[in-house]
């Protein structure tokens, strides 16, 4: 399930609010919020569409992992799916 929106990297572009096929996010005051986590289907699409590598979807479909954000960034786990499908940081899809 989607577990992390990294406040440091997120620019508040709200692409994830649009791109999530199950409408999990709401636009927030500064950055989006994970409003309906139970509706997450663990499809990784929000992470793929985030041009800032600010989102992390845990591989666990049914329960929470509570990952350490600093470690995810240090180990380049955040952004790894985009890299694997050949989408680079800053490559913003058009909505």
């Amino acid at each position: 399930m989607i577990e992390v929106i990294d406040e440091e990297r997120c620019t508040g572009c709200n692409i994830c609010v649009h791109a999530c096929p199950t409408n999990v996010f709401d636009a927030g005051a500064k950055i989006p919020v994970i409003a309906r986590q139970d509706d997450c289907q663990t499809c990784f699409m929000c992470e793929a569409w985030c041009p800032e590598d600010a989102l992390y979807v845990s591989p666990r479909a049914d329960d929470l992992e509570h990952p350490d954000i600093a470690a995810l960034k240090f180990n380049h786990v955040i952004g790894s799916y985009r890299a694997a499908i050949g989408w680079s940081k800053g490559d913003a899809p058009t909505i």
Binding site: H18, A19, C20, P21, T22, C43, F44, M45, A48, W49
Partner: peptide
Amino acid sequence: DKGFCGTSGATAP
């Protein structure tokens, strides 16, 4: 689209 055309459905992910 019920979700988002471009990420919805079985093909996109």
